[in-house]
Design a protein around this nucleic acid. Sequence first.
DNA 1: CAGCATCCCACAAGATACTG
DNA 2: CAGTATCTTGTGGGATGCTG
Lengths: 126, 126
Amino acid sequence: MVTKQLRDLPENADLRRADSLAREIFSDVANKWALLIIEALGERTLRFSEVRDEVEGVSHKMLTQNLRMLERNGLVDRKVHPTVPPRVEYTLTEPGRALRATVDAICGWTHRYLGHIEAARGRFDE
Amino acid sequence: MVTKQLRDLPENADLRRADSLAREIFSDVANKWALLIIEALGERTLRFSEVRDEVEGVSHKMLTQNLRMLERNGLVDRKVHPTVPPRVEYTLTEPGRALRATVDAICGWTHRYLGHIEAARGRFDE
DNA sequence: CAGCATCCCACAAGATACTG
DNA sequence: CAGTATCTTGTGGGATGCTG
């Protein structure tokens, strides 16, 4: 995201476009389900129902929506096998795997600071 | 987060507690506004209104809520100056700064793959 | 099995107004 | 200026049912 000062200069129309696109992508990606799905996929190829089982608490609908969104942004590859019953497999693409690295970092952060955070909550909630 | 197999064994009650706590924290933190606020704070100390100006599009209410949440989890430090008019300053704590590093990574990722993503969207939307 | 459509409710979040 | 409270609305997201 670019700085506020740049944002309003007319001559930087393309920068502003890139910026708004970046915000859009950020909003797409910075949400709980999307990140958990990416984390669940990891290096593996999973069927729809397998992803559902991996991502605890996700509803059928949320899963479909987020998988579509991730597919649209080119983060997951969706492969439909024309069999009966249908078999649909999802795999992270290269950009998806790159993002997963940062999700891993967040997970690592979470575990690292679990104690800190629990303590902070205790203090705050008193 | 631990694996599914562990999750249901009674003897792993503390592991399960840690896991549910981790999920809770992840849900708190993996949301657009929280991440944008953390990014906006960076290394600086900002007043409430300054954060509002930095984080484009955030409403007064969302900002207060998220700042409270971040404070509760010990990611930001809130300092109230008992002056008239009041002056309230927010600063990232050490855990907060550590998380910011990962937010930076996401921002970096966004810019790095902007082109890929735009192209993928074009293909998908056809 | 996976996906889509429909219905519906709860809650997220905006707008507004009032206080220290 | 920052925060809280109240009211209202839009929409996220669950439940259900139908199709290829």
